[in-house]
Amino acid sequence: MQIPWRTTPDVFAQILRRYRVEQDSVTDVQAAWGPFAEFMQVEIDGIDPTADSDADGFIVQWGRHSWNDGRLSLTFTRQLAIADIGDHDDPYRQPELWQLDLEMVFDDEADLIDLDQLDVTPLHAVAAQRADPTGFKFPPVGPLRAEALADTRAQAHRHAPIRSAWSALPTSSGLSFECVC
């Protein structure tokens, strides 16, 4: 069963709550990964069929950003290419890319300091062109996506700062859903 693309934040929030994880007060990154992996298996209606295999994917992102006062963050993202937006008669129309992010923010701790120094910080679509283990991945819903999620988690845990963030206590968290292009 597919869900309408506009309801994805609500559906993800419901899945988080079912796992006893509150979107605005994540206290366990590992506990948030389970609902994210489940949410990534939900089929979404409204995905642009012309975007081929790049219409629905995920990324694990990290870094420091101005919108959270330069504090370290770890983000689980689902990216969608949406079909039903814009002028369908425009021959140059491109699908809009929307991202649903669960961002978890951390205070600086010794184990986390190098998180923003890792060479694998895929924060932009350009990262899809690199061979980063946590870069954008677009496998179809089902076993291939489950395998890609497991591989991404394993790859992320090979980096000590990310592994530390996975077990650190976030100071804040939040769910956002916005157009990124």
Rank of each mutant, 00 (worst) to 15 (best):
I15T: 05
L16R: 05
L16V: 09
L16H: 03
R17E: 15
R18V: 02
Q23I: 08
Q23G: 09
V26T: 03
T27R: 15
T27L: 13
V29K: 02
V29Y: 00
A32W: 02
W33R: 11
G34N: 14
G34H: 13
A37W: 01
E38K: 06
Q41N: 09
Q41S: 05
V42C: 10
I44N: 02
I44H: 00
D45F: 06
D48A: 14
D48N: 09
P49Q: 05
T50G: 04
T50V: 06
D52Y: 03
S53H: 14
D54S: 12
A55F: 01
G57Q: 01
F58T: 08
F58V: 07
V60I: 13
R64W: 01
N68M: 04
N68Y: 03
G70S: 04
G70E: 02
R71M: 11
F76G: 02
R78G: 08
Q79I: 13
A81L: 08
A83F: 06
I85H: 04
G86N: 09
D90W: 07
P91M: 09
Y92W: 12
Q94R: 14
P95F: 07
P95C: 12
W98D: 01
L100Q: 10
E103M: 14
E103H: 07
E103V: 14
V105Q: 07
D108A: 11
E109P: 00
L112I: 10
D114Q: 03
D116E: 10
D119Q: 06
P122A: 01
A125P: 10
V126F: 08
Q129L: 14
R130P: 03
P133A: 08
G135E: 15
P139C: 09
P140R: 12
L144T: 07
R145V: 05
A146Y: 00
A148W: 07
L149I: 10
A150Q: 12
R153P: 05
A154Y: 04
A154H: 09
